[in-house]
Computed example of a mutant assay.
Amino acid sequence: MQLDPGAVVEGRVTRVTDFGAFVQFENGETGLVHISQIAHSFVRNIHDHVREGENVEVKVLGRDERGRLDLSIKELLEEPEEIPRPRAIGRQSPQFEAKLRSFMRDAKERGGGGGGGGKKGPATSKRKK
């Protein structure tokens, strides 16, 4: 079995993670189909597309610097005429922006500003030596 870049081969999904699916081939070698290589559309939940134990056809994209196989299912799927693009967010209403500023100011005062610049509460202002 040739696992050279461009080869199309069938393998069995041995493990599914949040970032991709591991596929094992007849020769015992395993490769990864990264979540971005599952489908042309955005994949929110990989479990909606592949399942452990399922046989899948994949295209070998190549090997990474460690020699691990990079695989794709998406490369074998017909590309849709138009890929849905995320809708651009336009300028928000002044009321929304005022509420957001108020929320952010309140969060900083409670110590949940997340990144400095805000007031420090009494628990963080004194250091023990």
Rank of each mutant, 00 (worst) to 15 (best):
Q2M: 11
L3Y: 01
D4R: 05
P5Q: 04
P5C: 06
A7W: 13
R12H: 01
V13S: 01
R15E: 06
F19R: 14
A21E: 03
V23Q: 04
Q24R: 11
F25P: 12
G31E: 10
L32R: 02
H34A: 03
H34R: 06
H34V: 08
H40P: 07
V43P: 07
R44I: 01
N45H: 07
I46G: 00
D48A: 05
V50R: 06
E52T: 09
E52N: 07
V56D: 00
E57A: 11
V58H: 05
V60E: 01
L61P: 14
L61F: 09
L61R: 08
R63I: 12
D64H: 07
D64G: 10
E65K: 15
G67N: 08
G67D: 01
L69S: 02
D70M: 05
L71A: 02
S72L: 14
S72G: 12
L77E: 07
L77A: 12
L77T: 08
E78Q: 14
E79L: 00
P84N: 10
P86N: 04
R87F: 07
A88K: 09
S93I: 00
S93W: 01
A98F: 09
S102Q: 15
F103M: 13
M104Q: 11
D106C: 13
R110Y: 06
G112T: 06
G115A: 05
G118D: 14
G118I: 15
K119L: 12
G121L: 14
A123M: 03
A123V: 04
T124V: 04
S125Y: 04
K126S: 06
K128D: 07
